[in-house]
Amino acid sequence: MSELLRCENLTKNYGRITALNNVSLVIPRGKIIGLLGPNGSGKTTLIKILNGLLTPTEGSLTIDGFKPGVETKSRVSYLPDSSYLNSWMTVEQIVNMFVDFYPDFRPELAYKMLKNLDIDPSVKLKTLSKGNKEKVCLILVMSRNAQLYVLDEPIAGVDPATRDYIISTIINNYNPDASVLLSTHLISDIEQILDEVIFINKGVVELHKTVDEIREENGMSVDELFREVFRW
């Protein structure tokens, strides 16, 4: 299995606070991976480093052999934890903007998903509900033909039926050359589609295993194990 992402001894300090402490990870191609951890554990910091939005204090990270930068931006499709789109634009205008920005963007796929989720492309983003805005953001991200999809909390604000649709979208979009890295708190909804889970706590990787290994070894779901590991 060829390697897509490698980070070695990655450390990120914010002043005196250590957000990531000596994290080493390898993510192969063709995997769906859950990045799980309590609030403030370093998930978003890691995601921001791999998108080039933050620079590590120490250590290195490469995606398809490249350090985060121009080359990786054409390979990584990123869903941030908060929307950055202009709310005065219509959905259609935003789709066109993505077509201009990304050569790998597939507008026909975006329109198909918008139609399935009953979102009218001619409306302005600001008229949509919070959940529907999130759906638009996710549709845009999944419509790229990227090598790594990085989804920061993709299902938090949407109803359970839409969660199922998003999960089936991720499965349908599965490509053996690409991987999906997603962070979430809603583990029980998503654990069935994950190959591997990474538990991160206080900036340290506590566990990196497959879902079936966890169930086999512990006789419990990933969600139950999480509650046990991170019990207060």
């Binding site: 089936s168 599965y174 589609i193 994950l194």
Partner: peptide, 13 residues
């Protein structure tokens, strides 16, 4: 893929 989608599980599994 059909099994993965209908069962809601990972295609690799």
């Amino acid at each position: 893929r059909e099994v993965a989608v209908t069962a809601g599980v990972n295609p690799n599994t």
